[in-house]
Design a protein around this nucleic acid. Structure first.
Length: 270
DNA sequence: AGAACCACCTGGCAGC
DNA sequence: TGCTGCCAGGTGGTTC
């Protein structure tokens, strides 16, 4: 579900109410997420103050000082605040209760998400191999160009690979390639330096715009405060097969790459 | 090392 | 109405 803008929107949505609060208790109704929720989660965290909530790629890092809780929302996860009398529904797997009956609830129908513990926010196996954040200076033309050398794989696959750059999911990969004028199936090694420059710029602009819009959202996303997220950021190509390109009117095409749908305009993207 | 494919899980929807 | 098949925002793991 959530792409990087949704995760960042969630982080910004929950941080003000949680920062500095002490965790009182945790209810784990179903520990069977992508990996089992640690049996000692509550024992490790109860009584500790939450110093910060950071983000690395699509992982949320709840910083409790000597221990860090990692939360990934997978395809269908969401975090929101609930009232103390709000009954848990079928897919509400974890509740964290902080001071003043502030309750954060994880809902994740598909259970591709994760709740894990670590003592280091960078050396954990899930984090150690991640590429740069897309919105930092580290992700630039020279970097992407170097990563494309010798790669026969399609450029869409390369930018969706978290080892290349984190946070570019299926929607924003198609959208970024449209803005850069590059077809998703183009072999990465065929990208010129100027094409890499356009793509880096497009990825940054598309993600920034989505964050500014509060995160686009499809079926499963719910804002941390509980209301439904924005349904459908105005996409240029994603999920628009057969519909006219908003720039040139040519019907948008859909192809499958790595078992994921890709969308592009055959005229605007070469 | 890189690329292709599979795995995990539920729900919504189109088509019959 | 009910069944079947397909599709969905992620990403680690296996195999070649």
């Amino acid at each position: 579900m959530p792409e990087l803008p949704e995760v960042e929107t969630t982080r910004r949505g929950i941080l003000p109410a949680l920062q500095g609060q002490t965790l009182q208790s945790i209810i784990v109704r179903n520990p069977r997420l992508r990996w089992p929720v640690p049996a000692d989660l509550e024992a490790q965290l109860a009584g500790k103050r939450l110093l910060d909530v950071r983000r690395r790629g699509k992982y949320l890092l709840f910083d409790f000082g000597d221990v860090i809780q990692l939360v990934h929302l997978g395809m269908s996860g969401s975090l929101r605040f609930v009232g103390s009398d709000e009954p848990a529904l079928l897919h509400d797997h974890v509740d964290w209760r902080f001071d003043a009956d502030t309750i954060l609830r994880l809902r994740d129908p598909r259970r591709f998400g994760a709740v894990l513990l670590t003592h280091d926010g960078s050396s954990h196996p899930l984090l150690a191999q991640l590429g740069p954040e897309p919105l930092t200076a580290e992700f630039d033309t020279a970097y992407l160009y170097s990563r494309c050398r010798g790669r026969g794989a399609a450029i869409k696959q390369v930018i969706m690979d978290a080892h290349t750059v984190v946070g570019v999911g299926n929607i924003y990969a198609s959208e970024s390639l449209f803005h850069a004028g590059i077809r998703p199936a183009t072999a990465a090694r065929r990208l010129t330096r100027p094409a890499c420059a356009r793509l880096v710029d497009a990825i940054k602009r598309v993600l920034e715009a989505a964050i500014a819009a509060g995160g686009s959202s499809l079926r499963d996303y719910v804002h941390s405060s509980g209301e439904l997220g924005y349904f459908q950021l105005a996409t240029r190509v994603y999920d628009r097969e057969g519909m006219p390109c908003k720039v040139c009117g040519t019907p948008i095409r859909r192809i499958v790459q790595g078992q994921r749908a890709s969308f592009y305009c055959p005229v605007c993207q070469r």
